[in-house]
C-alpha cells in the first residue's frame, strides 16, 4: 500500500501532463500533416510527415517576420531591464518618498487595454513617421514591460539578506561597484526569469503588432494572423505557421523554466 500509492500518483501525474499538453502537441504535429489528414477525428497518430506546409509558409516569407519579432522582443526586453532594474533597486533599497505610490503608478499603467490607446498612438506615430517601424514596437513593448520588471525585481531586491550587503559594504563595495559586484549577481536568477517573461509577452503581443505594422516591421503574430481566417481548408498550414510562431517562446521557456522557478523562489536564499 505504502509503495503503490506514490506510484499511482506518479502515473496519474503522467497522464494528466499528457492531457494538459495534448492541445500543444496537436498543434506541433498537425503542421506536418496534409490538409486532408489534418481534419480527421480522432487525429491519426501514424501518418507520413510532410514538410510541404512548412515549405509553403517559409516561401511566403516567414523568416523576415521571425527576424522582426526577434529584434523587437530582444531589444525591448534589454531596454526594459535597463530602465526597470535601477528603478526597482531604488524602490526596494533606497529611501524613496511614497515608494508604494510609485509602484502603484507603474502597475496602473498596465490597466488600460491596448485597444483603448491605439488611435492616439497611431496618430502620434503617423506624425513622427514611425508607422510600420521596428523602433515604434520596441518603444511600446519596452513601456509595456518596464512595470513588470519594476514590480518583479523589486521583490527580488527586497529578498536579499541584509547581512550580505552589509558584508559587502565592510569590504568597501558601495555605490555603483556594490551594485554590480554584490547586489546584481544575487538577483541574477530573478533577472533571468523577469527577462524571460518580458520576452514572452513581447513575442506574443498581438494587437499593437497587427495595428501598427504592415510590411517593414510586421511581426510573427501578424504573419500568423493572415492564416487565421483564410478561406478554404487551412488547419495544417495554420498549424505550421503557428508552430513557427510559438516555438521560439516555447523552447526558451522550456530551457529557462528551471531559472524561472529559481527566480521566483529567491526567498529561499534567506533560509
Amino acid at each position: 500500500m505504502k509503495r503503490t500509492l506514490p506510484l499511482l500518483i506518479t502515473i496519474a501525474t503522467y497522464a494528466l501532463a499528457f492531457l494538459y499538453f495534448s492541445p500543444v502537441l496537436w498543434l506541433l504535429v498537425t503542421g506536418f500533416k496534409t490538409e486532408g489528414e489534418a481534419i480527421i477525428v480522432p487525429p491519426s497518430i501514424l501518418f507520413e510527415p510532410t514538410l510541404e506546409n512548412l515549405r509553403l509558409v517559409w516561401d511566403a516569407g516567414a523568416s523576415a517576420f521571425i527576424g522582426h519579432s526577434a529584434i523587437v522582443s530582444m531589444t525591448s526586453t534589454v531596454l526594459a531591464l535597463i530602465l526597470g532594474v535601477p528603478a526597482a533597486y531604488a524602490l526596494a533599497m533606497l529611501k524613496v518618498k511614497k515608494a508604494d505610490d510609485v509602484l502603484f503608478w507603474f502597475i496602473s499603467t498596465k490597466m488600460l487595454p491596448a485597444v483603448g490607446v491605439i488611435i492616439p498612438i497611431y496618430l502620434v506615430l503617423k506624425e513622427l513617421g514611425l508607422l510600420d517601424s521596428l523602433i515604434a514596437l520596441v518603444l511600446l513593448y519596452t513601456a509595456m514591460n518596464v512595470p513588470l520588471v519594476v514590480w518583479m525585481m523589486r521583490s527580488f531586491f527586497k529578498d536579499i539578506p541584509y547581512e550580505t550587503i552589509e558584508a559587502g559594504r565592510v569590504d568597501g563595495a558601495t555605490g555603483l561597484q556594490g551594485f554590480f559586484k554584490i547586489t546584481l549577481p544575487l538577483v541574477r536568477p530573478g533577472i533571468i526569469s523577469t527577462a524571460l517573461l518580458c520576452f514572452v509577452f513581447a513575442w506574443n503581443e498581438f494587437f499593437f503588432g497587427v495595428s501598427l505594422t504592415s510590411t517593414n516591421a510586421a511581426t510573427m503574430p501578424v504573419f500568423m494572423s493572415s492564416y487565421m481566417t483564410q478561406q478554404g481548408l487551412f488547419w495544417a498550414k495554420m498549424s505550421s505557421v503557428a508552430t513557427l510562431a510559438v516555438l521560439p517562446a516555447l523552447v526558451l521557456g522550456w530551457f529557462t523554466q528551471r531559472q524561472l522557478v529559481r527566480g521566483l523562489t529567491m526567498g529561499a536564499v534567506k533560509g
Binding site: 530602465l83 526597470g84 535601477p86 528603478a87 533597486y89 531604488a90 524602490l91 533599497m93 533606497l94 529611501k95 524613496v96 518618498k97 510609485v102 503608478w105 507603474f106 499603467t109 488600460l112 483603448g116 490607446v117 488611435i119 492616439p120 498612438i121 496618430l123 502620434v124 518603444l139 511600446l140 519596452t142 513601456a143 518596464v146 512595470p147 519594476v150 550587503i165 559594504r169 558601495t174 555605490g175 556594490g178
Partner: peptide, 30 residues
C-alpha cells in the same frame, strides 16, 4: 544611507519618464 535619496530619484526617473511618455500621453489624448 547606502545612497542619498536624490540618488534614488536618478535611478527612478528614466523608467518613469519612459513609461510616462509612452503610456500616459496617449492616455491624456484618450
Amino acid at each position: 544611507a547606502l545612497e542619498p535619496s536624490s540618488g534614488a530619484r536618478g535611478l527612478l526617473w528614466p523608467g518613469i519618464i519612459m513609461v510616462g511618455i509612452i503610456t500616459q500621453l496617449p492616455f491624456l489624448y484618450t
